[in-house]
Nucleic acid binder design. Structure first.
Lengths: 180, 180, 180, 180
DNA sequence: TATGAATGAGGCTTCATTCAT
DNA sequence: TATGAATGAAGCCTCATTCAT
């Protein structure tokens, strides 16, 4: 994921990966049948991290505002500790939709679970009158993931002046307002 | 841009482009010295469209809220009429930072002008007390571009149920709130 | 064909071919979309040579015995002048049926025309009472092509003591008797 | 042999063989020093079957015509019961002469014994005035093995309409006539 | 200014063989 | 005697770029 995130899917060659992993080229193929499958496994891994974070938060008995705060916290910590997880997601999975095309339904197969957890969070906030009623799911989804994604992107450009986690409250606030 | 946006940078080959443009391969090289330079020209073009839209809006004597509304309108119209412009930006420029690395300062050379216009808009909103004071520029920038970008992304996945421009008010509202 | 015939399909590599043809690897792919397609083209070429020979003979107004003699003559001359044509046919096309599998009917797509000419010859001989009546086509086909093929094979092993064309009469005689 | 015959030498991989044999890859190498040696062992095995059949027949005190009949019978039965034996011979051994090149004399090292038995049969037939005198050995050899080989080939293509053994008399007849 | 055949480096993948256990 | 993970050379194919015309 580090290499995919840093260099993109096409500039990350199997020989390079082999060298970095201190494996032979052939042996990588004992574990992953193809380069794209390797990337898909990484997507699943990245997706699971975010999904699991949000899932745990969704089960807590706290306000939607607090939930947003916790998720932003988790998200920024991941970005800080393992920026490759998020950047891989943004720059490989989301930017190469054709590579990951799940030929079943509308796509997004690999991120489906995460989308569902976002849905749960939004329903919860609406039910508790913290978020405005009957807002369009796609817009709410864009508010939550778009702001976080864009911020991670900027973070990856190394132009932030402060420690990324320190932005937590202001980001959570912006998202919350965007949903209220 | 249509091909870069649809098939990605690497799957868009010069021979393919030549065929579609009804030019010879060699003649493309009479106009662009390399494939990456061709892509950079496209980035400049896409960036100019957005910059020019925002620039015009910034010069109007209306509220920041109205300016956001107008920009969202422009943005969605572009997404509707020429989705390749935005998708190219999201999927090629932003996702292949290494390819476009302006080896000068922190990067973003090609989108610099657009960033400046966003800055102007945000200053204006703060000065007129429509946006909250002293908010971090990177967060505000993420609110504006992240929400729009994520929404375009969803639109590209063909999962929206309504005409994209019809989402205008709700999106503008969410952005505005996120900045207030 | 020379290389395919001598070294087999799998030991004939594209880089080797490129070197021998004094072309670059890439340029071969400007003419043939894949290695197997290249081989198929060669099959078509080889098949056409034999088919055309037999076709011309079939149109002559001579006895079946003489026709066999002429075909054996042609066949041996080809084997002498361009042994690769026949050997390619035997060792690549006939021995790698999976590679050439025409997914349409029962296979043999590429050699179909030749089979038809054999049919014409056999019908002619039976009609003129030179060949025994109502013999099974597959056996007659085996008599004609099997004897010739096996002989070419032996010739390729460089174990024949005489000039190959000098075997003409005896081979033609054996085939003729096998069909009588 | 089944796999070599069906998939060819190159598509039959050691890992595949290991899986089918329910052995480990490494253990195959405890019995055969290399893939080609494994194939050579199979050639020897296939060759022995045919040689032994013909050897037994050669020792009988019957006419050459009857001997041909018996051998064709054996051959067709093998083709029916264990088609891989013959097809392996035709498609692997005979079609990849370079792989099996016995760097000693003219080749055919592995099939030498079979060739000798054919010689015995032909001598016998000539001595008893059933086959024409002083015919060239290579042609006679081609008549016997070529017809049978070609027929097996057709059988492998699944285009025969009847049970293969039922062709026995007609094939034996054609071979006999070809030698007479 | 236009053409497109030619180049060749480099990527993905396969698979015979080895070897530590 | 058995295992199977590991190795790495080698093959097919792609495609950005060049250049003679």
């Amino acid at each position: 994921m580090k290499f995919f995130a840093k260099k993109g899917f096409y500039h990350t060659t199997i020989p390079l990966l082999a060298k970095e992993l201190k494996m032979s080229v052939g042996n990588i193929y004992n574990y992953f049948p193809s380069k794209i499958y390797l990337a898909k496994s990484a997507v699943r891994f990245a997706s699971d991290i975010l999904t699991s974070s949000l899932h745990k938060i969704n089960q807590k008995n706290i306000s939607a505002k607090e939930k947003i705060g916790l998720f932003v916290q988790d998200y920024l910590e991941i970005t800080q500790v393992s920026p490759e997880v998020i950047e891989f997601f943004l720059r490989v999975y989301l930017s190469n939709r054709d590579l990951f095309e799940d030929n079943e339904n509308g796509g997004f197969q690999l991120a489906e679970a995460f989308v569902k957890e976002v849905e749960v969070l939004l329903q919860y906030g609406m039910k508790h009158h913290e978020f405005r009623k009957s807002q369009d799911f796609f817009i709410s989804f864009s508010v939550l993931t778009g702001i976080l994604g864009a911020f991670t992107f900027l973070s990856g450009e190394n132009i932030l002046k402060k420690d990324i986690v320190s932005y937590r409250d202001e980001i959570a606030d912006a998202i919350y307002k965007g949903l209220s």
